[in-house]
Design a protein around this nucleic acid. Sequence first.
DNA 1: CAGTGGTCTAGACCACTCG
DNA 2: GAGTGGTCTAGACCACTGA
Lengths: 244, 244
Amino acid sequence: MSDLRRPDARPLYAQVEAILNERIVSGAWTSGQALPAEPELAHELGVSPGTLRRALSGLERRHLIERRQGRGTYVARHTSRAALGQFFRVRTLDGRPADPESFITRVTTGPATEEEAARLALPPGAEVYRVDRSRRLDGAPRIAERISLPAALFPGLNLPIAPDQLGAEIYVHYQSAHGITVVRSEEVLSAAAATEEDAAVLGIPLGTPMLVIERVTFDAARRPVEMRVSRLDTRAHRYAVELT
Amino acid sequence: MSDLRRPDARPLYAQVEAILNERIVSGAWTSGQALPAEPELAHELGVSPGTLRRALSGLERRHLIERRQGRGTYVARHTSRAALGQFFRVRTLDGRPADPESFITRVTTGPATEEEAARLALPPGAEVYRVDRSRRLDGAPRIAERISLPAALFPGLNLPIAPDQLGAEIYVHYQSAHGITVVRSEEVLSAAAATEEDAAVLGIPLGTPMLVIERVTFDAARRPVEMRVSRLDTRAHRYAVELT
DNA sequence: CAGTGGTCTAGACCACTCG
DNA sequence: GAGTGGTCTAGACCACTGA
C-alpha cells in the first residue's frame, strides 16, 4: 500500500479520492460492486475514517458511487432514476420531465470531421462512429440527433438497433458494454431554423425555430467520449436549467 | 440562546445552517460583515466546531458567505467576480464569457399579468414594475429583455437609468438598495422567430431564430423576487450549461 | 506573531437495513 | 442483533493573512 505523506501538495482527502476514482475508472471495482466498509477501507488506506468519508463524499457528488445507510457503499450503476434524468433537461410546458423514446435511423463510420476531432480530442482523420436518432417526446417526434463516438473507445460498437433495447439510456450501454462511465457534460445552446432534414425527420415546416443543443460528454478519467448535436422542436417542450 | 436538542428531526448541522441563514436574510448580519470566529460561534450556538463548519459549508455552497483562510468568514457581497458571472451563461462562439452592457429603455408599472402573478406567487392584480432593457454583447445589441418585479418588494424602485450605474449588475442593486439577496434561478429555454419588436430593438431581420430564456429568481428566503424574459440573437453567441 | 480558516485524527453514539 | 453509513464531538496541528 502506497504512502500518502506530505511531498504531494494536495490535501490527503483529495489524494484518497483520486485513488478511489482510479480504482473505479480502471475497472478494479466494477459497476454495482460493494466497497469495503468505511472503517476497513480507512485502515487499508492508512487514513482516519473522517478523511475517508470526505473522499467518499466527493465521489458521491460526482455520481461515481452511491451510499445507502444501513446497507453499504456501491459503485454507481447508470440505471437508477436519478442517473437517467441526470443529463436530460427537456421538460413539457408545465414543467414535468418529458418521456423520451429513441429510434436509431442510421449508423455510419468515417474519418472525423475537423469539429469532431477538435471536440473529441482526436488526431486528424481518426475514425468515428455516427449514430443518427429520431426521438419522440410524449409520443410525437421532437428531436433530431446525431451522436459521434471515437471508434477507438467503442470497439465494434455493439449497438442494438431496436429502440426498446436502447431507449434514452445510451449511457447505460456505454458503461455495461464498453466500460465507459460518463460523469460530466458540457452543452452550448443556440437557435436555428429547421433545415430540410429537420423538416423531413420531424414532420415540421421548413424554417421552424429549433433549439440546437451541442453536447460533449466526459468520462471519469476526463476524456471526451461522446459528442452530440440535438435539434429540438420547442413548440411543446422546454429546456430547463437551474442556476445556483 | 435557543436549545437545539432532539425533538426536531433535522440533523443539528442543518438546524444551525437554518439559524445562520435567517440571520443573513433578516439583516441581523449585513452584506460584507465579518462573522464571529468559528470557535466563538460554535460556543455561542452550543455545538462542536465540526458541526458548525458543516453548516458554514452549506452556506458557502449557496454563496451566502465567503470564507478566506487566515482572514475570516464574511457575508457575501454580490460584487465579486464569481457572483457576477454566477447567473450569466452567455458565451462567445469560442467559449469566452460575453461582456454585457445594459441600456434601460423603459420602466413601467401596472397590475401583474396572469403569468407574472403565477411565476412571482402574487395575488391577482398585484402591482409589478417592468424594466425593459437592450443589452449589448461585445459591442453589438444582442439581447432584448423584460424584467418584472413585485412592487411590494422594491419600494420606490430606485433604479438608476444610466447604464454605467447599473450595467449587468442588477442583482447587486437588489442587495444594496432593497436588501434582497438572490441565491437561485430557474430558467427554461426555447426557440422562437424574432418579432417586430426584436427586429427593431436589435436591428435584425424579422423571423431571425432567437433563443428565448425565461427566468424566475429566488432569494435566500425562497421567495420568487424577479421574473425576466430574455431574447438572445445566437448568431454570434451561445448559452453554456455544464451537467454533472 | 497573533488570529483565522483548513486539515486530520479518534472515537462515541444514532438510524437504518436485512437476515 | 449484527453490520452499515450518518451524525456529532473534542482537539491537535497546519497554512495563510495582515498588523
